[in-house]
């Protein structure tokens, strides 16, 4: 496993990881500011943090109230 981490050029991977983090942070900020979401807020917090990429997308599509 150590080999894997040494062989990877982190400069290549970093933007990809950063953008995933940005997506998560935006979803979290939106979730905190939201007055009302579909379903319990705590559940969405959990989903957004635990499920990488899929979680924030799911929140924006299913959790967010758009009106």
């Amino acid at each position: 496993m150590n080999d894997l981490f040494q062989n990877i050029n982190w400069l290549i991977l970093a933007p990809f990881l950063v953008i995933q983090a940005v997506l998560m942070v935006i979803a979290l900020i939106d979730l905190i500011k939201a007055d009302d979401v579909k379903g319990p807020k705590g559940m969405w917090f959990f989903i957004v943090i635990v499920l990488n990429t899929i979680g924030p997308i799911a929140y924006f599509i299913f959790g967010r109230r758009n009106d």
Partner: peptide, 19 residues
């Protein structure tokens, strides 16, 4: 916020396989 998250998701989709 569609103008923020939709581009990000499309970037992730496009970049995933090359990497």
């Amino acid at each position: 916020k569609k103008w923020i998250w939709v581009p990000i998701v499309f970037i992730i989709l496009a970049v995933m396989d090359p990497i």
